[in-house]
Each structure stands twice: as C-alpha cells, then as structure tokens.
Design a protein around this nucleic acid. Structure first.
Length: 877
RNA sequence: GCCGAAGUGGCGGAAUGGCAGACGCAGAGGACUCAAAAUCCUCCAUGGGCAACCAUGUGUGGGUUCGACUCCCACCUUCGGCACCA
C-alpha cells in the first residue's frame, strides 16, 4: 500500500480530539503563551474584556477570545512582544445568590467556577498567559481596590454625600446612573426607584471635560461608542442668569414692567437659572422650578398657594423619576403665586413649578421662552401664559414670519435675527449669544458656564460579594479611613446568607473594629464597592500582577500600557469603558502611571445569534416574509449552542474558524451548523492536501524562490501563493478583517488543489510544498492545533507558532502580462491581455483596435480615452 | 424626537472611485460506488436568446465624475443608543 492510499483510507478526516489535546498539553509544557520578560520597542498588548466566572463558557466568550487569540498568535509570529493575559471579574451578585440558594460561601462557589472556566478556555486553545491571571475577588487583588480608594479619598476624588439615588429592590442595592437603562436595573430589569441615602461617590465629573476631549484622540474606536460617551457626558455651554424675586405682597403682575431702579432690583433675592439660549432672554414670559427645589417651600410659605404647591410637589417627587422624566409625559404644573423680574428688560414674570423641570440638572430652575423652546411652548399653551417672539427667521417664506403667534403650531427653535430685544435687535442669534453673555457679565446679572449631564459615580453597594469600602465610623473621630498598613479589609468567612439584608452588616466579627485614630469602639462601613471598580484598572494589574507592595509598578505600566487592542462587547460602550478611562486619568494624576487613555484601539464585537422557537406558535420564529429570525443566544430563548458540543463534534479549530469566518468581527454572527461543517470540511481538505503531499513538503524551500519559466501552471501557482501570503498578512495585521483573511487562505488551498489536479506527481513539488507551508502558516492564528500537527508531520521543523509569518516575494507578484478591462462609455465591453510594462500609448492603441470596442463605438470618433495602468481603459465616444 | 450604524444573489458576506457578487453555505449536474455517505469535477444575479450576445442590477430619487456599492444631497426601511438635560 502506498503512502497516499494509506492516508486516503485511514485519515481522510482529521482526528481533532487527539490532535487538540496533544497540542494543548505541549503548549502548556512549553509555556508558549508566556509574556516576554522585557517588552522592548515592539510590544503589543492584546486584551479581551475578562469574563464573569459563570462556570460555563458561552459562544459570546468564544467569539471575543477567538478574535483576540488570532491576533495574539499572529503578532507573535510577526515578532512582537505580546502581552495576552486573562483573568476573572469575580465579584458580583450571582455568587451571592448561589450562596443563599445552596448555602455555600461565595468564595468557594466562585473559585469552582473559575477553575471550570479555565478548563474550557484551555479546550479552545487560547494562548493566554495564565501566570498573570487576575481574579478580582481574591484579597491580593481587592486590597488594591481599597488602597486606590484611599488614594482617591485623600485627593477628594472619593467622597460621601446624601443624594437621591437609584435603588433596585430585587438586587437590594443602589445603582449608578450608568447602570439604569430606561428606568430599569441593568442587571435584572427590575424598575428602579428613588431613595435618599448617604452614599460613596467617585468624582468622575472632575474629569468630564478631559473624558470628552480625549475621545477625539481615540481614532480607532468605533464612532458609535464615542458618540454614546459624548452624549452621556452631555456637555453644554450656556449661562447662569440671575432673575430677581419680587416680594409676596407685590401688586405687580405678569406682563408688567417692574418700574424699579437698578439698586432696588439688585437688592431683591436672586433666582439662578441655567440656559443654553441666552439669545432668547428677552422672550422670557415665565419661570419654572423643579417641584422638589429647596426654595419652593420658602416661596409659598404663608401664602394662599402654600397647600396646593406642597401637595403638587409631594406627588411629583413620589412619582418615580423615570416615568416623570419620560418625554411623552403630559406637562403638569402649578402657579406659585409669586413673580420674578427679568433684570435685562424689567419684565415681571410668573413663577411656576412643573414636573418636567429636573432638580438634578442645572440649577433646578429654568427661564421659559415659549416662542423658542418646544416644551415651554406646550406648557404655555396649556396654562395660557403669553408667548413673546424674540427670534425672527431670516427665511422670508418661513411660517414663523406670521406675526400672530396664536397661529404658531410649535416653537421656533432655529437661529435667526433678534427682535423685541433692544439693544440687540437685528443681531444674528448666534452672535447675540456671545454679546448677551458679555452684557450679563458686565452688569453682574449672570455668567458664562458649562454644564454636564454626567453625574458622579455612585460606588456604594449594599451587597456582600464585593470589595469592602475601607472606612470606619467612630463616635468620636467620625469617618476614619483604614490606614494603608491595615489593608486588606477582608470579607468575613462567618457571614450568614439568609436572603434578607446585607450579610456583611449582620457579621459582628466584621462590623466591630477599633478606631485607628483613638482606639475606641468603631463600626466598619458595610457597603462594598460597585464591581465596575474592579474592572476599571485590572488591565494595569496585568502589567505587574504579583506586585505585593503596590497595585502595579509605574515601570511595568509604562512598559506595557496602553492596551494596543481591546476587544469586547458593545454593551459596555458607556459603563466599563467610561469608568476605565476615568480611572486611568485619575491614577495618572496620582502619579501611578503615565498613560492617559487605557485602550488605544477598540473592537466592539457583535452578538452571536441563532434561530429560536416562537413560544406562541411552537415553531421556529419567522418574519412576515417567512424568513427565519435570529436573536441573541440566551437562556430565556433556549437558543444557545454549547461550545463544548461543537468542540466535541468538530474540534476547537473548526469552532474558531467558523466564528471568525462567518461574519466581520464587529457585526452580528448568525450561528449556522452548515457553516460550521463547511469550515470543518475545509480543515479536512488542508489535512489531506498536506498528508497526501508529504514528499513535496520535504523538498519545500522556506522562502520563495524562482519558478521555472516553462510552466505557466507553476507560474500561476507561485503568483497565487505569494498573493495569498500578502493578503492574509494585510487582512489580519492591518485591517483586522479575519473573515477575508480566512477567505484568502481558502483561495490559496483552492489554487494548490487546482495545481495538483492538473499536474499530479509531475508538477513542481518544491513549489507545492512551499505553498502548503505558507497555507499552514497563514491558518495558524485561526486553527493552531491542526496546523501545528501538520507542520510537525510535514517535517518543516521547529514549532509552527515560533515561525515568522510569511512575507510575499515582491518579484513573484510582478506579472508578465496583465488583463485589461475595456469599457466604452463606462460599460464593460471586452478584455485584452497586454504586457505588464506596456506603456499607455500601446495599451490605448490595443484598446481602440479591439473589435468589440469598435462595434460599440459604432463608427464614432472617441472623444476621450482614459487609461488606468494595469487595470482598464475607458473609451468615451 | 435626537444621535449612531447599516441596507449588495436563495443565505452569510467580498470589493484603496476602476471588471459588482471574492470566499463559504444552500442548490443543480457529473465522476467514483452494487448503492449511499464521504470525496473530487463542473455550473450557479435577473430577464431575453439555441448561441455569440443584449438588456437590467448594490434600499429609492437626484447630483459630482470618463467611470459610483464606494463621494455629495434628499428620502425610505431596519437595527442600536439616548430620551422633557433647559
């Protein structure tokens, strides 16, 4: 039996299980994923968002880590010093819920999950440096959370305050603004309510401007993520303006001029408002306070309106913030009986309270210009408040040129020219903004300012399984931070998980502690930190994971940061990515590192979706046209595919290849078993191609060499090989398009197969071997196990992962002859083959002489001939 | 409502302003086989034509250009985010 027949009968399908186990073991023994000691100039930090250790790897995980691993393996071949670490975002509610359910300590439950997940990572063949593993729930990590908290506290960037905050009743804890999605808890979807509590905050607002400005430096971030962050930060330029409060017993009424002198007006109490439209100040016809504004009670004290206003305010405040703030919510309001004076023109305007004015933005009070603001307009219509136009559109046909404002159907919010605003009449409204602000400042009526929607980050959580906030409360000394040398404050092992209340608060051994200052009896803070604190700096810890004297050394951070390529889900567009950017900047200001943005380049990978069964019909869900619908793989839809099943059936290489091939990384990936099988078949073809041509492999040169000029087949193959090599390198390395890189590898295999079909054993064996060699190298980043095995069997020598990624031979890419497309008036009509170095005149003449070109010209003289060298000729006639 | 992304064969998807549909899936035909599976080969946008070939074609309508999937304007649809932020 010949070698070929042997292969054909016994190993036409590659034994993925034995091959994968063999190489996974080998890589572990060789520590092939270890990070180089000194990164050098060519460092590259590849990082995927670390997972929550649920205990089971899902397809979403497989996708992120397959992307990152392909990149890491490719870059190692390219000679970079690659840092590709992994860890676990291990604090969080599921462990605590498991503790309640199964009466197992969250630490034990979490560690078991971590260990299970590591096994699964291993089975996927990811090349991770586990020596740098970071597990956030271990004291050797969270002690540095506490240490960093203390540093932020010293700097005034961590502080405690009473505030109206978001409360999730299901999770029994407060939530940061970023963690509330359309009024519901980001984790469990329960509607969030508002509570007034004393809580710890990080002063992220201190960095609002920098967080916004530096987005412009992140060129390789998706626009969508940058836009989301911009909107979330919500910077708006405007002015703070002081209106003056008239006494309760004034006889003046709305629409009057106050008739008071400047000194008299100046002596009245201020009402400060924020506006982005100072150009409309002369059009103010009323003012509105948020119902819960602290001055509302004072305004109406002892007046006839007192009771009604109090009732209104009470109702508005009880109503939860998110239904109240919905845009389609009916505008409700109430006149307070009081009036204010617009210092700019002496107008007397009524003061209302209304549900649509929010206490937490600006000053909690607004000036209302119904002619030029849609909300103010609707409110004015409903309550019969006058409307005064002060901006005139410049377009003479505009419907807002109608002098009778009763005919207006909406407010005119566009720019225009000022009217009824002496001395600013006739000024363009954009210029008027500046001029009026300058006027306000000169008269001391107000000042320019910048407002943000971004709020400080609420980090307290009333949960057990998180980092204890390192603070004590002493009856004599007050709030006392835990001294550095007493860190970590560890979670107790004796906590009881009953399902009600915070187990930490119930743990006597934890709560009672001596005051570090006076030694008296003190109580520990029982709130823990938001788990997003853990993930806000873990990428820095990877640089120096075993440091026991600091969270990381400045030198190590400087060596590796910033992350050159970060990969993760779009769901963290704001949350994790904004917090991490804030932390990086704050740590820089603490002198701990010197990088200002953590993630140079960001890839937001798409969801993995699958068909699902419609619960109503019991059939696969389809759209109106009968096409199958896809939805994110999830427990609730029951449409998840277990990666372990795929590994078992087709192998990890197939799974990885399919995941990367089926869709561009940033797009949705529709799971199709047929597609998986397609990739499996492709790997089998590679397997057979190699094993059936071992003789060719044995004679293969390592670098491209000259090819016999006699054989056009050989020349074509040589071109295809070098073209494939070049494309794969560019697609992975420069464009990060894994799907097209794999397509290029498939083309390469097709070219090899075409060649062997044509020439059989008579062909240029060395060239074929060279092509197989290149194919294995090109596929290694995606399918490392099978290519390692084939590399070894082909006897190419050494370990494939340690080879240099192949470089195309430029000489091989220079063609003798090229095909030129011939167009007549932009339409393809013919093709000709010319010498690659033919000059323009020759190509032009050949094109014009072409029969089809002639017939389509129908005897007309060409008016113009465009020649694109090596590509096409367009004859215009 | 505002912001962002995207609309290409039966399907997933390719195309630095230069031959639309690479690559794969599905499908059709053939080879091998007693047969099937696997494998290998060929075909595969639509309409017309025996064919050569012709016409049409990248959401819709305009525009720029010798030339537009690609750039510009308007619109439609889908997905995602924000949502009374003064």
């Amino acid at each position: 039996m010949t070698e070929q027949q042997n292969v054909a009968t016994s190993e036409t399908v590659y034994p993925h299980k034995t091959v994968e186990q063999k190489w996974q073991r080998a890589w572990e023994e060789q520590k092939s994923s270890a990070t180089p000691e000194k990164p050098g100039a060519e460092k590259f930090y590849v990082l995927e968002m670390f997972p929550y250790p649920s205990g089971r790897l899902h397809m979403g995980h497989c996708r992120v880590y397959s992307i990152g691993d392909a990149l890491a393996r490719f870059l190692r071949m390219k000679g970079k010093s690659v840092l590709h670490p992994m860890g676990f975002d291990a604090f969080g509610l599921p462990a605590e819920n498991a503790a309640i359910k199964h009466q197992i300590h969250p630490a034990d439950w979490t560690e078991k999950c971590v260990s299970d997940m590591k096994d699964q990572f291993h089975m996927m063949g990811f090349s991770l440096d586990w020596d740098r593993e970071v597990v956030t729930c271990r004291p050797d990590y969270y002690r540095w959370n506490q240490w960093l908290f203390l540093k932020l506290f010293e700097k005034g960037l961590a502080y405690k305050k009473a505030a109206a905050i978001n409360w999730c009743d299901t999770c029994q804890t407060v939530l940061a603004n970023e963690q509330v999605e359309q009024g519901a808890c980001w984790r469990c979807g329960n509607p969030v309510t508002v509570k007034n509590l004393e809580q710890w905050f990080f002063k992220i607002t201190e960095y609002a401007d920098e967080l916004l400005a530096d987005l412009d430096t992140l060129e390789d971030w998706p626009d969508s993520v940058k836009t989301m962050q911009r909107n979330w930060i919500g910077r708006s330029e405007g002015a703070l303006v002081d209106f003056k409060l008239l006494p309760a017993d004034t006889t003046l009424k709305a629409g009057d001029k106050c008739g008071l002198g400047a000194a008299e007006i100046s002596a009245l109490p201020d009402i400060e408002i924020f506006t982005t439209r100072p150009d409309t100040l002369f059009g103010v016809t009323y003012m509105v306070f948020a119902p819960e504004h602290p001055r509302v009670a004072e305004l109406t004290a002892g007046t006839a309106h007192e009771a009604a206003v109090r009732d209104f305010a009470a109702k508005a405040v009880i109503e939860d913030r998110f239904t109240r703030a919905a845009a389609d919510k009916e505008k409700e309001g109430l006149f307070t009986g009081r009036y204010a004076v617009n210092q700019l023109n002496g107008d007397v305007v009524p003061i209302y309270i209304a549900n649509f004015v929010l206490m937490e933005y600006g000053t909690g009070a607004i000036m209302a210009v119904p002619a030029h603001d849609q909300r103010d307009f609707e409110f004015a219509k409903k309550f019969g408040v006058p409307i005064k136009q002060v901006i005139q559109p410049t377009d003479l046909n505009s419907e807002f040129r109608v002098p009778n404002l009763d005919l207006w159907k909406s407010a005119y919010i566009e720019p225009g020219v000022l009217v009824h605003s002496a001395p600013f009449d006739g000024v363009n409204s954009l210029d008027a903004k500046k001029q009026i602000v300058a006027h306000l400042e000169a008269q001391k009526f107000g000042r320019k300012t910048i407002q943000y929607k971004l709020r400080d980050w609420l980090i307290s959580r009333q949960r057990f399984w998180g980092t204890p906030i390192p603070v004590l409360y002493c009856p004599t000394c007050g709030v006392v931070p835990v001294p550095e040398n007493q860190l970590p404050v560890t979670l107790p092992t004796d906590a009881k998980f009953t399902g009600s209340g915070n187990p930490l608060a119930a743990s006597e051994s934890f709560v009672n502690a001596p005051c570090p200052k006076c030694g008296g009896k003190a109580r520990r803070e029982t709130d823990t930190m938001d788990t997003f604190v853990d993930s806000s700096w873990y990428f820095l810890r990877y640089c120096d994971p075993k440091n026991s004297t600091a969270p990381f050394s400045r030198a190590a951070a400087t060596e590796w940061m910033s992350v050159d390529q970060y990969i993760g889900g779009i769901e963290h567009a704001i949350l994790h990515l904004l917090y991490s950017r804030f932390f990086t900047k704050a740590l820089r200001d603490l002198g701990l590192c010197d990088c200002k943005e953590p993630f140079q380049r960001l890839l937001a990978q798409g969801m993995v979706t699958n068909t699902y069964v419609d619960k109503q019909t019991g059939e696969l869900a389809v759209d109106e046209t009968g096409r199958l619908k896809y939805a994110k793989m999830s427990k609730s839809l029951g449409n998840g595919v277990d990666p372990l099943d795929i590994i078992d059936k087709y192998g990890a290489d197939t799974a990885r290849l399919f995941i990367l091939f089926a869709a561009p990384a940033e797009k949705e990936l529709e799971w199709k078993e047929d597609g998986v099988i397609g990739c499996y078949k492709f790997l089998n073809r590679v397997w057979r191609m190699t094993l059936q041509n071992l003789d060719a492999c044995a004679s293969a040169p390592a670098v491209a060499t000259a090819v016999s000029a006699e054989s056009t087949e050989a020349q074509e193959l040589n071109y295809a090989i070098n073209w494939g090599i070049q494309r794969v390198g560019v697609e992975i390395g420069e464009r990060h398009h894994f799907n097209t890189a794999i397509a290029a590898s498939m083309e390469l295999l097709n070219a090899l197969q075409t060649y062997t079909n044509k020439t059989g054993a008579a062909g240029d064996r060395a060239l074929l071997g060279f092509g197989i060699r290149a194919l294995l190298l090109a596929l290694y980043p995606f399918a490392p196990h099978v290519t390692s095995e084939l590399w070894e069997r082909a006897g190419f020598g050494g370990d494939i992962g340690q080879q240099a990624f192949p470089e195309a031979n430029p000489a091989a890419l220079i063609l003798q002859q090229v095909e030129i497309a011939l167009q007549v008036n932009g339409k393809l009509r013919s093709k000709i083959v010319v010498a690659a170095d033919a000059d323009e005149a020759t190509v032009r003449a050949a094109a014009l002489a072409d029969e089809k070109v002639q017939s389509h010209l129908q005897g007309r003289e060409p008016k113009k001939v465009v020649v694109v060298k090596g590509k096409l000729v367009n004859v215009v006639g």
